[in-house]
Design a protein around this nucleic acid. Structure first.
Lengths: 120, 120, 120, 120
DNA sequence: GTGGTCTAGACCACG
DNA sequence: GTGGTCTAGACCACC
Protein backbone atom coordinates (compact mmCIF):
# COMPACT_ATOMS: atom_id res chain seq x y z
CA UNK A 1 0.00 0.00 0.00
CA UNK A 2 1.46 3.31 -1.07
CA UNK A 3 0.16 6.65 0.08
CA UNK A 4 -0.41 9.86 -1.77
CA UNK A 5 0.92 12.88 -0.03
CA UNK A 6 -1.97 15.21 -0.69
CA UNK A 7 -4.45 13.27 1.42
CA UNK A 8 -4.14 12.41 5.11
CA UNK A 9 -2.82 8.89 5.53
CA UNK A 10 -5.38 7.95 8.15
CA UNK A 11 -8.11 8.89 5.67
CA UNK A 12 -6.54 6.86 2.90
CA UNK A 13 -6.42 3.90 5.25
CA UNK A 14 -10.01 4.38 6.38
CA UNK A 15 -11.18 4.60 2.80
CA UNK A 16 -9.20 1.53 1.90
CA UNK A 17 -10.85 -0.39 4.73
CA UNK A 18 -14.23 0.72 3.47
CA UNK A 19 -13.53 -0.78 0.08
CA UNK A 20 -12.22 -3.95 1.74
CA UNK A 21 -15.48 -4.24 3.65
CA UNK A 22 -17.44 -3.68 0.45
CA UNK A 23 -15.31 -6.29 -1.29
CA UNK A 24 -15.91 -8.84 1.43
CA UNK A 25 -12.43 -8.98 2.91
CA UNK A 26 -13.98 -8.16 6.26
CA UNK A 27 -17.57 -9.45 6.44
CA UNK A 28 -20.07 -7.75 8.74
CA UNK A 29 -19.63 -8.82 12.34
CA UNK A 30 -16.06 -9.92 11.69
CA UNK A 31 -13.17 -8.67 13.82
CA UNK A 32 -10.69 -6.33 12.22
CA UNK A 33 -6.95 -6.78 12.72
CA UNK A 34 -5.72 -5.06 15.87
CA UNK A 35 -4.43 -1.56 15.49
CA UNK A 36 -0.86 -2.78 15.90
CA UNK A 37 -1.24 -5.63 13.46
CA UNK A 38 -2.74 -3.40 10.84
CA UNK A 39 -0.11 -0.75 11.46
CA UNK A 40 2.64 -3.30 10.97
CA UNK A 41 1.01 -4.59 7.82
CA UNK A 42 0.75 -1.23 6.10
CA UNK A 43 3.98 0.05 7.66
CA UNK A 44 2.54 3.03 9.42
CA UNK A 45 2.53 4.46 12.91
CA UNK A 46 0.00 2.74 15.19
CA UNK A 47 -1.49 6.09 16.14
CA UNK A 48 -2.40 6.64 12.53
CA UNK A 49 -4.32 3.38 12.27
CA UNK A 50 -6.00 4.08 15.57
CA UNK A 51 -7.19 7.34 14.12
CA UNK A 52 -8.55 5.56 11.04
CA UNK A 53 -10.46 3.09 13.22
CA UNK A 54 -11.81 5.91 15.34
CA UNK A 55 -12.91 7.77 12.24
CA UNK A 56 -14.73 4.68 10.97
CA UNK A 57 -16.36 3.96 14.29
CA UNK A 58 -17.62 7.55 14.57
CA UNK A 59 -19.43 6.90 11.30
CA UNK A 60 -20.92 3.66 12.57
CA UNK A 61 -19.03 1.54 10.07
CA UNK A 62 -17.11 -0.37 12.70
CA UNK A 63 -17.59 -0.72 16.45
CA UNK A 64 -15.16 -1.21 19.29
CA UNK A 65 -15.91 -3.90 21.85
CA UNK A 66 -14.04 -3.29 25.04
CA UNK A 67 -10.87 -5.32 25.19
CA UNK A 68 -11.80 -7.36 22.16
CA UNK A 69 -11.01 -5.02 19.30
CA UNK A 70 -12.92 -3.48 16.45
CA UNK A 71 -15.72 -5.27 14.58
CA UNK A 72 -17.49 -4.49 11.34
CA UNK A 73 -20.99 -3.22 12.16
CA UNK A 74 -24.16 -4.84 10.92
CA UNK A 75 -25.35 -2.99 7.84
CA UNK A 76 -21.91 -1.55 7.26
CA UNK A 77 -21.78 -2.50 3.60
CA UNK A 78 -25.08 -0.84 2.85
CA UNK A 79 -24.19 2.26 4.84
CA UNK A 80 -20.82 2.59 3.11
CA UNK A 81 -22.32 2.13 -0.30
CA UNK A 82 -25.06 4.71 0.13
CA UNK A 83 -22.66 7.21 1.65
CA UNK A 84 -20.06 6.79 -1.07
CA UNK A 85 -22.69 6.83 -3.80
CA UNK A 86 -24.11 10.02 -2.44
CA UNK A 87 -20.79 11.87 -2.49
CA UNK A 88 -20.14 10.38 -5.90
CA UNK A 89 -23.31 11.76 -7.42
CA UNK A 90 -23.58 14.94 -5.33
CA UNK A 91 -19.95 16.03 -5.39
CA UNK A 92 -17.65 14.08 -7.66
CA UNK A 93 -19.77 14.11 -10.80
CA UNK A 94 -20.79 17.79 -10.52
CA UNK A 95 -17.12 18.69 -10.04
CA UNK A 96 -16.21 16.73 -13.14
CA UNK A 97 -18.88 18.42 -15.18
CA UNK A 98 -17.90 21.86 -13.92
CA UNK A 99 -14.27 21.30 -14.80
CA UNK A 100 -15.26 19.86 -18.15
CA UNK A 101 -17.20 23.00 -18.99
CA UNK A 102 -14.46 25.34 -17.80
CA UNK A 103 -12.07 23.55 -20.15
CA UNK A 104 -14.56 23.55 -23.01
CA UNK A 105 -14.51 19.78 -23.36
CA UNK A 106 -17.57 18.30 -25.04
CA UNK A 107 -19.82 15.80 -23.30
CA UNK A 108 -19.42 13.24 -26.04
CA UNK A 109 -15.68 13.20 -25.59
CA UNK A 110 -15.98 12.58 -21.87
CA UNK A 111 -18.59 9.88 -22.27
CA UNK A 112 -16.46 8.15 -24.86
CA UNK A 113 -13.41 8.23 -22.60
CA UNK A 114 -15.38 6.84 -19.71
CA UNK A 115 -16.78 3.94 -21.70
CA UNK A 116 -13.32 3.18 -23.06
CA UNK A 117 -11.85 3.16 -19.56
CA UNK A 118 -14.58 0.77 -18.47
CA UNK A 119 -13.77 -1.76 -21.15
CA UNK A 120 -10.10 -2.03 -20.19
CA UNK B 1 -13.74 35.64 -4.03
CA UNK B 2 -14.35 33.30 -1.16
CA UNK B 3 -11.96 30.59 -0.11
CA UNK B 4 -12.48 26.99 0.85
CA UNK B 5 -10.39 25.92 3.80
CA UNK B 6 -9.36 22.51 2.61
CA UNK B 7 -7.10 23.96 -0.06
CA UNK B 8 -4.31 26.51 0.45
CA UNK B 9 -5.44 30.03 -0.38
CA UNK B 10 -2.40 30.76 -2.52
CA UNK B 11 -3.28 27.77 -4.70
CA UNK B 12 -6.89 28.77 -5.03
CA UNK B 13 -5.74 32.20 -6.15
CA UNK B 14 -3.27 30.73 -8.63
CA UNK B 15 -5.88 28.45 -10.14
CA UNK B 16 -8.39 31.24 -10.25
CA UNK B 17 -5.90 33.33 -12.22
CA UNK B 18 -5.40 30.41 -14.58
CA UNK B 19 -9.09 30.34 -15.35
CA UNK B 20 -9.11 34.12 -15.74
CA UNK B 21 -6.30 33.85 -18.26
CA UNK B 22 -8.21 31.13 -20.09
CA UNK B 23 -11.30 33.30 -20.05
CA UNK B 24 -9.46 36.28 -21.48
CA UNK B 25 -9.52 38.53 -18.42
CA UNK B 26 -5.74 38.76 -18.69
CA UNK B 27 -4.63 38.34 -22.33
CA UNK B 28 -1.16 37.03 -23.10
CA UNK B 29 1.48 39.69 -22.70
CA UNK B 30 -0.77 41.74 -20.45
CA UNK B 31 0.32 42.95 -17.04
CA UNK B 32 -1.30 41.46 -13.97
CA UNK B 33 -2.34 43.60 -11.02
CA UNK B 34 0.60 44.22 -8.74
CA UNK B 35 1.02 41.88 -5.81
CA UNK B 36 -0.17 44.54 -3.41
CA UNK B 37 -3.13 45.56 -5.54
CA UNK B 38 -4.32 42.00 -5.95
CA UNK B 39 -3.81 41.32 -2.26
CA UNK B 40 -5.97 44.29 -1.36
CA UNK B 41 -8.60 43.25 -3.85
CA UNK B 42 -9.04 39.72 -2.54
CA UNK B 43 -8.37 40.80 1.05
CA UNK B 44 -5.38 38.62 1.64
CA UNK B 45 -1.84 39.22 2.79
CA UNK B 46 0.56 40.39 0.09
CA UNK B 47 2.91 37.49 0.78
CA UNK B 48 0.15 35.06 -0.09
CA UNK B 49 -0.44 36.64 -3.47
CA UNK B 50 3.31 36.80 -4.04
CA UNK B 51 3.38 33.08 -3.47
CA UNK B 52 0.59 32.52 -5.98
CA UNK B 53 2.41 34.61 -8.56
CA UNK B 54 5.67 32.78 -7.91
CA UNK B 55 3.87 29.46 -8.24
CA UNK B 56 2.50 30.51 -11.63
CA UNK B 57 5.82 31.88 -12.83
CA UNK B 58 7.58 28.64 -11.92
CA UNK B 59 5.17 26.94 -14.29
CA UNK B 60 5.90 29.42 -17.08
CA UNK B 61 2.37 30.82 -17.02
CA UNK B 62 3.40 34.32 -16.01
CA UNK B 63 6.74 36.11 -15.89
CA UNK B 64 8.12 38.82 -13.68
CA UNK B 65 9.84 41.79 -15.22
CA UNK B 66 12.05 43.53 -12.72
CA UNK B 67 10.39 46.55 -11.20
CA UNK B 68 7.53 46.44 -13.65
CA UNK B 69 5.36 43.63 -12.39
CA UNK B 70 4.13 40.27 -13.62
CA UNK B 71 3.03 39.63 -17.20
CA UNK B 72 1.12 36.76 -18.76
CA UNK B 73 3.55 34.63 -20.79
CA UNK B 74 3.16 33.98 -24.49
CA UNK B 75 1.48 30.64 -24.99
CA UNK B 76 0.08 30.68 -21.47
CA UNK B 77 -3.47 29.83 -22.50
CA UNK B 78 -2.38 26.86 -24.51
CA UNK B 79 -0.06 25.64 -21.78
CA UNK B 80 -2.75 25.95 -19.12
CA UNK B 81 -5.35 24.20 -21.21
CA UNK B 82 -3.14 21.25 -22.15
CA UNK B 83 -1.97 20.86 -18.58
CA UNK B 84 -5.48 20.92 -17.14
CA UNK B 85 -6.84 18.63 -19.85
CA UNK B 86 -4.06 16.17 -19.21
CA UNK B 87 -4.81 15.88 -15.53
CA UNK B 88 -8.50 15.70 -16.36
CA UNK B 89 -8.15 12.77 -18.74
CA UNK B 90 -5.20 11.06 -17.08
CA UNK B 91 -6.24 11.40 -13.47
CA UNK B 92 -9.71 12.74 -12.83
CA UNK B 93 -11.63 10.51 -15.25
CA UNK B 94 -9.76 7.29 -14.37
CA UNK B 95 -10.41 8.03 -10.70
CA UNK B 96 -14.09 8.50 -11.43
CA UNK B 97 -14.26 5.24 -13.35
CA UNK B 98 -12.37 3.36 -10.67
CA UNK B 99 -14.69 4.65 -7.97
CA UNK B 100 -17.69 3.89 -10.14
CA UNK B 101 -16.60 0.31 -10.57
CA UNK B 102 -15.78 -0.19 -6.91
CA UNK B 103 -19.27 1.01 -6.06
CA UNK B 104 -20.86 -1.14 -8.72
CA UNK B 105 -22.48 1.78 -10.48
CA UNK B 106 -23.33 1.17 -14.12
CA UNK B 107 -21.88 3.27 -16.92
CA UNK B 108 -25.28 4.20 -18.26
CA UNK B 109 -26.28 5.70 -14.98
CA UNK B 110 -23.16 7.85 -14.82
CA UNK B 111 -23.48 8.96 -18.43
CA UNK B 112 -27.08 9.92 -17.84
CA UNK B 113 -26.23 11.95 -14.75
CA UNK B 114 -23.47 13.76 -16.59
CA UNK B 115 -25.65 14.70 -19.52
CA UNK B 116 -28.36 15.89 -17.14
CA UNK B 117 -25.88 18.06 -15.25
CA UNK B 118 -24.74 19.58 -18.52
CA UNK B 119 -28.19 20.65 -19.52
CA UNK B 120 -28.84 22.60 -16.33
CA UNK C 1 27.75 29.13 8.20
CA UNK C 2 28.02 32.69 7.03
CA UNK C 3 25.95 34.18 4.28
CA UNK C 4 26.82 36.42 1.37
CA UNK C 5 24.31 39.14 0.80
CA UNK C 6 24.18 39.06 -2.96
CA UNK C 7 22.41 35.71 -2.98
CA UNK C 8 19.19 34.81 -1.13
CA UNK C 9 19.87 33.03 2.13
CA UNK C 10 17.37 30.27 1.43
CA UNK C 11 19.22 29.47 -1.79
CA UNK C 12 22.59 29.42 -0.10
CA UNK C 13 21.19 27.00 2.45
CA UNK C 14 19.67 24.80 -0.24
CA UNK C 15 22.90 24.64 -2.18
CA UNK C 16 24.85 23.98 0.96
CA UNK C 17 22.61 21.03 1.68
CA UNK C 18 23.16 19.79 -1.85
CA UNK C 19 26.88 19.73 -1.26
CA UNK C 20 26.38 18.05 2.10
CA UNK C 21 24.34 15.34 0.40
CA UNK C 22 27.04 14.94 -2.22
CA UNK C 23 29.63 14.75 0.55
CA UNK C 24 27.71 12.07 2.42
CA UNK C 25 26.66 14.12 5.44
CA UNK C 26 23.08 13.15 4.67
CA UNK C 27 22.95 9.75 2.93
CA UNK C 28 20.04 8.91 0.65
CA UNK C 29 16.95 7.90 2.59
CA UNK C 30 18.22 9.65 5.72
CA UNK C 31 16.15 12.18 7.60
CA UNK C 32 17.22 15.81 7.54
CA UNK C 33 17.14 17.96 10.66
CA UNK C 34 13.69 19.36 11.23
CA UNK C 35 13.00 22.80 9.87
CA UNK C 36 13.10 24.29 13.34
CA UNK C 37 16.27 22.47 14.32
CA UNK C 38 18.11 23.53 11.21
CA UNK C 39 16.85 27.08 11.58
CA UNK C 40 18.19 27.25 15.12
CA UNK C 41 21.48 25.74 14.02
CA UNK C 42 22.19 28.25 11.27
CA UNK C 43 20.51 31.07 13.19
CA UNK C 44 17.88 31.88 10.66
CA UNK C 45 14.12 32.14 10.72
CA UNK C 46 12.28 28.83 10.39
CA UNK C 47 10.36 30.09 7.37
CA UNK C 48 13.61 30.59 5.52
CA UNK C 49 14.72 27.03 6.09
CA UNK C 50 11.25 25.82 5.17
CA UNK C 51 11.67 27.64 1.89
CA UNK C 52 15.04 25.97 1.28
CA UNK C 53 13.56 22.56 1.99
CA UNK C 54 10.60 23.25 -0.27
CA UNK C 55 12.97 24.41 -3.01
CA UNK C 56 14.90 21.14 -2.73
CA UNK C 57 11.77 19.00 -2.63
CA UNK C 58 10.42 20.66 -5.76
CA UNK C 59 13.59 19.50 -7.47
CA UNK C 60 13.14 15.94 -6.21
CA UNK C 61 16.26 16.09 -4.07
CA UNK C 62 14.44 15.63 -0.78
CA UNK C 63 10.90 14.54 0.10
CA UNK C 64 8.60 15.41 2.95
CA UNK C 65 6.81 12.66 4.79
CA UNK C 66 3.77 13.97 6.61
CA UNK C 67 4.50 14.63 10.24
CA UNK C 68 7.85 12.89 10.11
CA UNK C 69 10.11 15.39 8.44
CA UNK C 70 12.16 15.63 5.28
CA UNK C 71 14.17 12.74 3.84
CA UNK C 72 16.86 12.62 1.17
CA UNK C 73 15.38 11.08 -1.98
CA UNK C 74 16.74 7.97 -3.60
CA UNK C 75 19.04 8.96 -6.43
CA UNK C 76 19.52 12.43 -5.00
CA UNK C 77 23.31 12.37 -5.25
CA UNK C 78 23.24 11.37 -8.88
CA UNK C 79 20.55 13.91 -9.71
CA UNK C 80 22.44 16.72 -7.98
CA UNK C 81 25.70 15.86 -9.65
CA UNK C 82 24.29 15.62 -13.15
CA UNK C 83 22.34 18.84 -12.70
CA UNK C 84 25.37 20.75 -11.42
CA UNK C 85 27.68 19.28 -14.05
CA UNK C 86 25.25 20.23 -16.76
CA UNK C 87 25.11 23.88 -15.76
CA UNK C 88 28.88 23.80 -15.35
CA UNK C 89 29.57 22.55 -18.85
CA UNK C 90 26.60 24.15 -20.60
CA UNK C 91 26.67 27.55 -18.96
CA UNK C 92 29.64 28.28 -16.78
CA UNK C 93 32.40 27.15 -19.13
CA UNK C 94 30.88 28.73 -22.26
CA UNK C 95 30.52 31.99 -20.34
CA UNK C 96 34.16 31.79 -19.30
CA UNK C 97 35.28 31.17 -22.86
CA UNK C 98 33.11 33.96 -24.23
CA UNK C 99 34.49 36.41 -21.70
CA UNK C 100 37.99 35.19 -22.39
CA UNK C 101 37.62 35.84 -26.09
CA UNK C 102 36.03 39.22 -25.64
CA UNK C 103 39.00 40.22 -23.49
CA UNK C 104 41.50 38.77 -25.94
CA UNK C 105 43.01 36.43 -23.38
CA UNK C 106 44.77 33.43 -24.87
CA UNK C 107 43.73 29.88 -24.08
CA UNK C 108 47.15 28.90 -22.85
CA UNK C 109 47.12 31.60 -20.23
CA UNK C 110 43.76 30.47 -18.89
CA UNK C 111 44.76 26.82 -18.86
CA UNK C 112 47.93 27.66 -17.00
CA UNK C 113 46.04 29.68 -14.38
CA UNK C 114 43.57 26.87 -13.86
CA UNK C 115 46.22 24.22 -13.36
CA UNK C 116 48.05 26.50 -10.95
CA UNK C 117 44.88 27.07 -8.93
CA UNK C 118 44.33 23.34 -8.77
CA UNK C 119 47.72 22.66 -7.27
CA UNK C 120 47.21 25.06 -4.39
CA UNK D 1 19.22 42.88 -26.85
CA UNK D 2 17.61 40.49 -24.43
CA UNK D 3 18.10 40.62 -20.71
CA UNK D 4 18.61 37.92 -18.15
CA UNK D 5 16.46 38.27 -15.11
CA UNK D 6 19.03 37.39 -12.49
CA UNK D 7 21.21 40.41 -13.14
CA UNK D 8 20.18 44.06 -12.89
CA UNK D 9 19.34 45.42 -16.32
CA UNK D 10 21.33 48.61 -15.83
CA UNK D 11 24.39 46.46 -15.12
CA UNK D 12 23.81 44.33 -18.19
CA UNK D 13 23.59 47.49 -20.26
CA UNK D 14 26.70 49.00 -18.70
CA UNK D 15 28.62 45.82 -19.31
CA UNK D 16 27.39 45.68 -22.87
CA UNK D 17 28.60 49.23 -23.44
CA UNK D 18 31.99 48.26 -22.04
CA UNK D 19 32.32 45.52 -24.61
CA UNK D 20 31.16 47.90 -27.34
CA UNK D 21 33.89 50.33 -26.33
CA UNK D 22 36.42 47.52 -26.35
CA UNK D 23 35.19 46.44 -29.75
CA UNK D 24 35.52 49.92 -31.20
CA UNK D 25 31.83 50.72 -31.61
CA UNK D 26 32.42 53.81 -29.50
CA UNK D 27 36.02 55.03 -29.86
CA UNK D 28 37.62 57.02 -27.06
CA UNK D 29 36.52 60.64 -27.06
CA UNK D 30 33.41 59.78 -29.05
CA UNK D 31 29.96 60.83 -27.88
CA UNK D 32 27.58 58.14 -26.72
CA UNK D 33 23.94 58.13 -27.80
CA UNK D 34 21.77 60.22 -25.53
CA UNK D 35 20.11 58.46 -22.68
CA UNK D 36 16.76 58.62 -24.44
CA UNK D 37 18.13 57.43 -27.76
CA UNK D 38 19.85 54.49 -26.15
CA UNK D 39 16.77 53.70 -24.08
CA UNK D 40 14.61 53.65 -27.19
CA UNK D 41 17.12 51.47 -28.98
CA UNK D 42 17.25 48.77 -26.31
CA UNK D 43 13.59 49.24 -25.35
CA UNK D 44 14.14 50.11 -21.74
CA UNK D 45 13.14 52.84 -19.37
CA UNK D 46 15.29 55.94 -19.73
CA UNK D 47 16.00 55.97 -16.02
CA UNK D 48 17.64 52.60 -16.38
CA UNK D 49 20.03 53.78 -19.08
CA UNK D 50 20.75 56.90 -17.07
CA UNK D 51 21.78 54.67 -14.23
CA UNK D 52 24.05 52.64 -16.50
CA UNK D 53 25.73 55.82 -17.73
CA UNK D 54 26.12 57.07 -14.20
CA UNK D 55 27.61 53.75 -13.14
CA UNK D 56 30.13 53.94 -16.00
CA UNK D 57 31.01 57.54 -15.33
CA UNK D 58 31.62 56.81 -11.66
CA UNK D 59 34.22 54.32 -12.83
CA UNK D 60 35.85 56.84 -15.14
CA UNK D 61 34.93 54.93 -18.26
CA UNK D 62 32.75 57.68 -19.66
CA UNK D 63 32.38 61.34 -18.76
CA UNK D 64 29.47 63.71 -18.89
CA UNK D 65 29.97 67.12 -20.44
CA UNK D 66 27.34 69.54 -19.33
CA UNK D 67 24.58 69.84 -21.84
CA UNK D 68 26.48 67.86 -24.45
CA UNK D 69 26.05 64.32 -23.30
CA UNK D 70 28.34 61.48 -22.32
CA UNK D 71 31.72 60.83 -23.95
CA UNK D 72 34.05 57.86 -23.82
CA UNK D 73 37.03 58.79 -21.61
CA UNK D 74 40.60 58.75 -22.79
CA UNK D 75 42.18 55.46 -21.74
CA UNK D 76 38.79 53.84 -21.32
CA UNK D 77 39.67 50.76 -23.33
CA UNK D 78 42.77 50.09 -21.29
CA UNK D 79 40.99 50.72 -18.01
CA UNK D 80 38.10 48.43 -18.96
CA UNK D 81 40.41 45.68 -20.08
CA UNK D 82 42.55 45.68 -16.93
CA UNK D 83 39.50 45.83 -14.69
CA UNK D 84 37.69 43.00 -16.47
CA UNK D 85 40.85 40.91 -16.65
CA UNK D 86 41.40 41.34 -12.95
CA UNK D 87 37.94 40.09 -12.00
CA UNK D 88 38.35 37.32 -14.55
CA UNK D 89 41.55 36.00 -13.01
CA UNK D 90 40.82 36.88 -9.39
CA UNK D 91 37.17 35.83 -9.21
CA UNK D 92 35.82 33.99 -12.20
CA UNK D 93 38.59 31.45 -12.63
CA UNK D 94 38.92 30.62 -8.91
CA UNK D 95 35.16 30.12 -8.76
CA UNK D 96 35.33 27.78 -11.73
CA UNK D 97 38.11 25.77 -10.14
CA UNK D 98 36.32 25.59 -6.80
CA UNK D 99 33.14 24.32 -8.39
CA UNK D 100 35.13 21.90 -10.51
CA UNK D 101 36.70 20.39 -7.43
CA UNK D 102 33.43 20.21 -5.51
CA UNK D 103 31.98 18.23 -8.41
CA UNK D 104 35.05 16.03 -8.73
CA UNK D 105 35.68 16.99 -12.32
CA UNK D 106 39.24 16.48 -13.53
CA UNK D 107 41.36 19.35 -14.81
CA UNK D 108 42.02 17.62 -18.10
CA UNK D 109 38.34 17.40 -18.84
CA UNK D 110 37.83 21.10 -18.22
CA UNK D 111 40.85 22.08 -20.27
CA UNK D 112 39.69 19.95 -23.12
CA UNK D 113 36.21 21.45 -23.06
CA UNK D 114 37.62 24.95 -23.04
CA UNK D 115 39.89 24.34 -26.01
CA UNK D 116 37.02 22.75 -27.89
CA UNK D 117 34.77 25.71 -27.20
CA UNK D 118 37.50 28.04 -28.49
CA UNK D 119 37.75 26.27 -31.82
CA UNK D 120 34.05 26.57 -32.60
C1' DG E 1 6.00 52.29 -8.08
C1' DT E 2 7.52 47.07 -8.53
C1' DG E 3 8.98 42.28 -6.92
C1' DG E 4 12.06 39.67 -3.58
C1' DT E 5 13.56 38.36 0.76
C1' DC E 6 13.48 37.92 5.62
C1' DT E 7 11.64 37.99 10.36
C1' DA E 8 8.45 37.01 14.10
C1' DG E 9 4.77 34.83 15.58
C1' DA E 10 0.59 32.39 15.09
C1' DC E 11 -2.56 28.38 13.99
C1' DC E 12 -3.61 23.99 11.93
C1' DA E 13 -3.65 19.08 10.60
C1' DC E 14 -0.96 15.17 10.79
C1' DG E 15 1.93 11.14 12.90
C1' DG F 1 6.96 16.27 17.57
C1' DT F 2 6.52 17.39 12.29
C1' DG F 3 5.55 20.28 8.04
C1' DG F 4 2.27 23.77 5.92
C1' DT F 5 0.03 27.99 5.68
C1' DC F 6 -0.98 32.63 6.74
C1' DT F 7 -0.34 37.26 8.70
C1' DA F 8 2.01 41.58 9.71
C1' DG F 9 5.51 44.32 8.98
C1' DA F 10 10.04 45.42 7.56
C1' DC F 11 13.99 46.34 4.27
C1' DC F 12 16.20 46.11 -0.17
C1' DA F 13 17.36 46.62 -5.09
C1' DC F 14 15.46 47.81 -9.25
C1' DC F 15 12.63 50.45 -12.85
Amino acid sequence: MDFKNNKPIFLQIAEHICYEILGGTYPEGERLPSVREYAAEVEVNANTVARSYEWLSQRGIIESKRGMGYFVSQGAKESIRTSLCETFFQETLPDVVAQMQKLGIKVNEVVQHITELCHE
